[in-house]
Amino acid sequence: MGSYEEINYNLRPAKCIERKMLCEAFGRLSVFGKIESYGYIGFGSNYFTDFSLFHKALNICNMTSIEKDTSNKKRFEFNKPFSCIKIEFGNSTEVLPRLNLDSKKIVWLDYDGKLTKDILLDLNYIFSKAVSGSVIIVSINVTPETLSDEISESRLEKIKVEIGSNKVPNDTSEKSFPGWGTARVCRKIILNEISQILNTRNAEYKKENKLCYRQLFNFHYSDNAKMLTTGGIIYDEGHESHLTRCSFNDLSFVRENEEEYIIKVPNLTFKEIRHLDEQLPSKNGEEISAPAVKPSDANNYKRIYRYFPSFTEANL
């Protein structure tokens, strides 16, 4: 059973904010090539929320949704919101090698599970094929493993067994995993994997064509489980100036290193939201406030108000 059956993705507020932030960042890719010419590959599930947003906001038309549930094909086909979406059925490990990555792509591997060797294998495929200008994003569950009764089964051992001990960074210890620690370890593992693949791939290229990776996203959020979304752009060394011109750094949520951007969603009423909105954007970063709203909530709202979702009951 996929998690789509438990919850409508639209209702995950942090995810919703993240999606809008990503969309805004994608808009800046036009320096590398018309954004309409990009292809999008994602896991649309039954709701296709990301597909709808990226199609409407960016006019991306070449869209592929990877769907692992092969028993409900008709339902997925029926729920496709736009005709330009193609659904490929099968696990990502099976489907990805069938997809052509010869042209610029935005790929969002939005897994619900934890980091596994299959995920690293998916990255292996994408990073061994993706061309300059492509953006690749991975979301994984980084809730620390529950401490089992058996003391011998440590979190460190568990991850070593899952992905191989040579992939776990040297300085990782048992203390690295609690809280958001698992997210930090996983980001490092993913980054190391990407570097290794590009390094291997670059053996073939002359200097100006050598491929580089620049991390752009390092989101931490928790609608329920702790989630990590990390990703970035592949570019060849000759195109470094393109990257500068994209000015990703002007976006408050872009993170190029290990520092994370935490999406925290305050619980506010519509009346409070309207009251806060009237003070935004605040001049010179002044504090905003609403009666009886905690200053920290108001401050969190200030960071994300442009992406803030509003949920209401509606007759559509």
Partner: peptide, 17 residues
């Protein structure tokens, strides 16, 4: 060999399915 490593990347992609 860096050439062999490059090809191995391809071999991995090919053997998966």
């Amino acid at each position: 060999s860096s050439f062999y490593k490059l090809i191995r990347l391809e071999m991995i992609n090919i053997i998966r399915p």
